[in-house]
């Protein structure tokens, strides 16, 4: 069970905060990320290949916003002890990543700068075979400097 009771966590549902600030989609960072996931697709390395696919620049790969966990992309008041900036009182050693979902308006492109706003969208508890499981759903919307929504990310964390 988390340190915080369910009623206290439920009161946090709907709360939003900026959790990603100044996430520049850099050419080199895209290359570093796709290399780490062994993705050799030239669209992530060559703007001409991207252009052939109708993209104005090299795109970020679908899971690129994972790089937001670097401190350089976090606002100064970011709560590093929590999950995506939310201290829910989950025990880190017993917390697993249950699901991850992405919705794309279009791919983020090299040269764009993203801001991420995270909302705690759900908290619930269920009895499992090993006791109470607590579920938290955190939804992050990534927008560029024009305020255009590019990616919505939904992460489900489970404390077992």
């Amino acid at each position: 069970m988390p340190e915080k009771p369910l009623t206290e966590l439920e009161e946090l549902i709907g709360e939003s905060r900026i959790t990603v600030d100044g996430l520049v989609v850099e050419r080199g960072k895209v290359r570093e990320f796709v290399t780490a996931v062994r993705d050799e697709n030239p669209v992530y390395r060559d703007a001409d290949v991207a252009a052939e696919q109708g993209l104005d620049e090299v795109p970020a790969p679908p899971t690129f916003t994972q790089v937001a966990r670097h401190p350089r992309y976090q606002p100064a008041d970011f709560d590093d002890d929590g999950i995506q900036g939310f201290d829910l009182g989950f025990d880190e050693a017993r917390t697993v990543h249950g699901e991850q979902e992405y919705e794309f308006e279009r791919p983020a492109l090299v040269g764009e700068t993203l801001t991420g706003t995270t909302t705690l969208t759900d908290v619930s508890q269920r009895e499992g075979s090993d006791g109470t499981m607590t579920f938290a759903v955190l939804t992050t919307e990534y927008r560029n400097d024009d305020g255009e929504l590019l990616v919505t990310e939904r992460k489900t964390a489970i404390e077992t």
Binding site: R38, D39, N41, T63, H97, E101, Y102, P107
Partner: peptide, 27 residues
């Protein structure tokens, strides 16, 4: 998310990165 990155690679190889509308992974 490393495994999810492999899954995303299959999807973008299949459809193209600009055509992927949404995806969800369960670990």
């Amino acid at each position: 998310m490393l495994t999810a990155g492999y899954a995303a690679q299959m999807l973008t190889d299949w459809f193209g990165v600009g055509n992927l509308d949404r995806f969800k992974t369960r670990f």
